[in-house]
């Protein structure tokens, strides 16, 4: 078999195939529920209800989507330039660490502390990705492996700090940082609703990234470098500088996930701050076809699957890992479906 480009793909093809991918995901999830001895329809119903069945559920989903929007944007920005940043997890923790350091050590008043924490976080995240980017450009070291390995190193650094100098003396021996002061926390987005400003910030970030991509020279250059670095170089685009800028932007965005989780939700830093938001960001970005506004939609979808599965698992006896499997299946079937909207399989 080989692939042949499809010219002017029909609307049915462009919509039908992604829907089919979604259907495959639902079928796999049903089979998994069946394997656990549960009724598939009831299970899917419970997931849906847990994700969006009440105001509380919906807000929970949006809260969970917040860090995923940031890490999804980080991945989308980087992947567009073919910079394979698999290290959003490390950048997230770097951001969270700086948020806690600035928030607890400097004693700044709230209105100053919040932007200071955010800036410090962005800087730290950008620096964490700068290393692999420079190694890639200077020495040709594959950034996939370096960013992946940095995730492990960063968690150990955090663990070391939480058991050492950053340990909360009031923490009953748990490895956690002291909390940042109340007035340095992100306020609620809407008074009375359990949704913090991190979500608003994530939306602003998504729109900003989108505007950068369509309205600025950098956005154009990032796209050109991602499509064909040689051609971009011939066209006079400073490829290396563009990749460095992309890395700083991507690392900074991922770090904001850490900032928003600490300043908006948790208040302190622990080793389980992120249940893999950095890795899930890759799925979020791919499902959004690397489109910044699409990232918002797909982050809410993925967050809904996780939040819904969590609440379902408490009601029915189906392990929560059903969500992780479903998300992975959605990713694989969606990239295939998108490919098949552009190419058809022919014999020979």
């Amino acid at each position: 078999m080989r692939l042949e480009p499809v010219r002017d793909a029909s609307l049915a093809r462009r919509l039908g195939l992604p829907l089919l991918a979604l259907a495959v995901t639902v079928v796999v999830a049903s089979v998994l529920a069946r394997l656990a001895g549960a009724d598939p329809f009831a299970t899917l119903g419970l997931i849906l209800k847990g994700a969006a069945g009440s105001k509380f559920a919906l807000l929970e989903t949006l809260n969970r989507a917040t860090p995923l929007i940031f890490t999804g944007l980080a991945v989308a920005v980087a992947f567009r330039a073919k910079l394979w940043n698999i290290g959003a997890e490390a950048q997230l923790y770097a951001g969270a660490l700086m948020t806690v350091l600035v928030g607890t050590q400097l004693g700044l008043p709230g209105p100053v502390a919040i932007p200071a924490m955010a800036l410090a976080a962005i800087l730290a995240g950008a620096l964490v990705l700068l290393g692999p980017a420079v190694l890639k450009l200077r020495l040709g070291v594959d950034e996939v492996v370096t960013t992946l390995l940095l995730n492990f190193i960063m968690l150990l650094v955090i663990s070391m700090l939480l058991e050492g100098p950053l340990k909360d003396p009031m923490g009953m021996g748990w490895p956690k940082s002291p909390p940042i002061p109340r007035d340095a926390r992100l306020p609620r987005l809407i008074e009375g609703l359990r949704l913090h400003w991190g979500f608003g910030l994530a939306l602003i970030a998504a729109v900003s990234v989108w505007l950068i991509q369509i309205r600025t020279t950098l956005g154009y250059e990032i796209r050109a470098v991602g499509l064909n670095p040689q051609a971009a170089r011939f066209a006079g685009i400073p490829v290396n500088r563009v990749i460095v800028k992309t890395a700083l932007l991507s690392g900074g965005l991922a770090a904001l996930a850490g900032f928003s989780e600490v300043a908006g939700l948790k208040g302190n830093l622990t080793l389980d701050l992120s249940p893999g938001f950095g890795y899930t960001g890759i799925v979020v970005a791919m499902l959004a076809l690397l489109h910044p506004l699409g990232v918002v939609v797909s982050a809410i979808f993925v967050a809904g699957v996780f939040v819904g599965a969590n609440s379902m698992s408490r009601a029915a006896d189906v392990p929560t890992y059903i969500a992780d499997i479903s998300v992975a299946v959605a990713l694989l079937s969606m990239v295939l479906a998108i490919l098949l909207t552009k190419f058809r399989v022919v014999r020979g």
Partner: peptide
């Protein structure tokens, strides 16, 4: 994607 799928399948 395969890493996510294989890991979560094993855990499930």
């Amino acid at each position: 994607g395969i890493t996510m799928l294989a890991t979560s399948s094993a855990y499930y």
